[in-house]
Design a protein around this nucleic acid. Structure first.
Lengths: 196, 196
DNA sequence: ACGGCTAGCAAGCACCCACTTGCACACATT
DNA sequence: AATGTGTGCAAGTGGGTGCTTGCTAGCCGT
């Protein structure tokens, strides 16, 4: 017989996918079982209840993706930030349905907040650390909080990734070069000494 | 007997509120009827089906809020943009639950997209128009697309407004001055000639 | 060969869902 | 007085939902 890890893993993957598309209420144990090709009873034998199944599935899904890291010592600011932002944006795009659904479910299941928030938060602090180092090295001349432009970049990457498919006409900027433009805005706002 | 307009209006308001909090599946005709203090049958007599009820309620709700406009001729750039951004942010905050829910429901009900997208889009084009005029007047010196910083500002106002309550620790910037900081980032990136 | 583990299947329980039907009551207009 | 309109109430239909129970069958290590 197949190992139990396989079944449990399949169930979590299927559950995460259905949850992303249909939300908490739409993720019925019958649908999960059918999509996973197992009996509905098996779902309850593994997880005990729908609530446990969903929470484990969401946590498992958010543990899958790993966020990009910026170099310890800033090199080519623009190139490194663009690459970082591209990776960030790619993650958001890949998980847009999950992000949208989690945002909506926070209202009824606020305990989901921290699982989905830890990764992006760490990434943002990484960017703050990176840019602080760059400014300490005299390569960013603008004064003021370094958090503001970082928050703006993160929010933009999230928003554009999340709404990209559902209302593509909402962004007047063509997709591929948009991220470079956003990074340029940030760098110019922070007084980058190297002009592109 | 009370006029029919009253009942229908109450039903739409109640439905919009419940939908924002519980989503499409969570908005049951029983719950709506109970919250509105009417019989469930009355709901069907007014709207015919749950689908019609929800679509009319959402459209009615999104027709309620009116978005800010920037002056036809740019005056004090920073003051006008801050005031505009504050008003924008206030709308998003007031309707955060509805926005989150709509974002999630787009997956299953894509026809909701344009009702919730028209307002913000018009506001963004207004901002582009305003800043283009300011640049034509020689008050913004940076070259490049004017859309990028506007998109970033819009995305930031949306994101911060939408996630503000659910993960307040996510924004490292204190609430009230954050918007001014964001506007300053935009202005500096665009090469505003007036320093604050 | 045997016990434990994992799974399938069939059936059922109590509840919620959207939606319908039939009847009665109060009011407003005519 | 008659009519129409908006509403309430009681009941019911067919289906979905979370979850349980009892029973069977295959695979595993011992």
């Amino acid at each position: 017989m197949e190992t139990t890890a396989d079944t449990k893993c399949t169930l979590m993957a299927v559950t995460a996918r259905i949850f992303a598309a249909m939300g908490w209420r739409g993720t019925t144990t019958r649908r999960v079982a059918e999509a996973a090709g197992v009996n509905e009873v098996t779902v309850f034998r593994h997880f005990g209840s729908k609530e446990v199944l969903l929470k484990e599935a969401i946590a498992w899904s958010s543990a899958q993706d790993q966020f990009p890291r910026l170099p310890a010592v800033p090199g080519d600011l623009r190139a490194e930030l663009v690459s970082w932002a591209r990776a960030m944006h790619a993650i958001v795009v890949r998980k847009r349905a999950m992000i949208r659904t989690c945002l909506a479910e926070f209202e009824e299941h606020p305990e989901l907040a921290h699982v989905a928030c830890d990764g992006p938060m760490a990434a943002m602090q990484d960017a703050v650390r990176y840019l602080t180092a760059a400014r300490a090295a005299g390569r960013l001349t603008a004064p003021g909080a370094i958090e503001a432009p970082v928050v703006m970049l993160m929010d933009t990457l999230f928003m554009e990734g999340v709404i990209g498919d559902v209302m593509p006409e909402c962004s007047p900027i063509a997709g591929d070069q948009a991220i470079e433009l956003f990074v340029d805005v940030v760098l110019r706002a922070m007084g980058a000494t190297e002009e592109r």
